[in-house]
């Protein structure tokens, strides 16, 4: 098992945000965390990444409890792509090179440069290499962020709404890229998403959250219209399209 989340609970001040969250992620798998706005999807990702401490429960990567590790050691196991990343006057190469920080001692090594170079080639970003990220489009910047997470050489990639501000073509490009990456590098990915149909198309399994609790953890075949209607509070129908379920509001 790549990642195990057991009985996770998180409170913000005295208010309960998440409770009884338990699931696991297999190698080379994309798990989508779904649910309405404000249900705690981003909070769950932050708990997994040890950016915030859960009140109780454990998160384990390959059997190792993350709460026993330093921030830097966590960063060697988990690559995080935040929903918003600020753009500065840094070239794509340097922005991706940032992903080597958890592995750096005094500065960058020849190996760091070579890894960044390899990932740039693999993701086909050669044209962007020396362009400043504050001059890039949203889709290009998102690819740079994903490349940065990959050069961290993590076991797990966490992506917080990676497609939220992108057009259809870029959404598909990013999700396909993610599929390729996890297959080639034997990593797993956890993503949060709002677009149900995109998630059903590209993710392998799904965790649905409602009122801070897990309503379901299932694969594509177990998605029913009752489940979706219950989670989002909207009546829907489900149709089949080339073997993928498509959710359409009534």
């Amino acid at each position: 098992m790549m990642l195990d989340v057991k009985d996770l609970r998180f409170d913000y001040r005295s208010e309960n945000v998440l409770k009884d969250i338990s699931f696991h992620v297999h190698p080379k798998e994309i798990l989508a965390i779904m649910g309405p706005n404000g249900v705690g999807k981003t909070t769950l990702l932050r708990c997994i990444n040890a950016i915030i401490k859960p009140k109780s429960g454990v998160v384990m990567v390959k059997g190792q409890d993350l709460s026993t590790l330093s921030l830097k050691e966590v960063a060697k196991k988990i690559g995080y792509v935040a929903q918003y990343s600020e753009s500065s006057r840094l070239t794509a190469f340097d922005a991706i090179l940032l992903g080597r920080m958890p592995h750096m001692k005094w500065g960058i090594s020849a190996q760091d440069l070579s890894i960044v170079n390899a990932v740039i080639k693999q993701l086909n970003l050669q044209k962007l290499t020396l362009r400043y990220i504050d001059e890039m489009s949203g889709g290009e910047r998102q690819k740079v962020s994903i490349a940065r997470a990959i050069v961290q050489e993590p076991e797990i990639l966490l992506l917080d709404e990676p497609t939220s501000s992108l057009d259809l073509k870029n959404q598909i490009e990013i999700l396909k890229l993610l599929q390729t990456v996890i297959k080639e590098h034997t990593v797993s990915a956890i993503i949060t998403m709002h677009d149900i149909n995109m998630a059903l198309r590209y993710a392998d399994r799904f965790v649905f959250l409602k009122h801070g609790k897990m309503s379901a953890c299932c694969d594509r075949t177990s998605i029913t219209k009752d489940l979706i209607s219950d989670i989002y509070g909207v009546a829907v129908s489900i149709y089949d399209h080339n073997g993928y379920p498509v959710v359409v509001p009534e």
């Binding site: 990444n49 995080y80 935040a82 600020e86 840094l90 961290q152």
Partner: peptide
């Protein structure tokens, strides 16, 4: 510079 969340994710 890349954002607090990203920086925390980088350790």
């Amino acid at each position: 510079d890349a954002g607090d969340e990203t920086a925390k994710g980088l350790g």
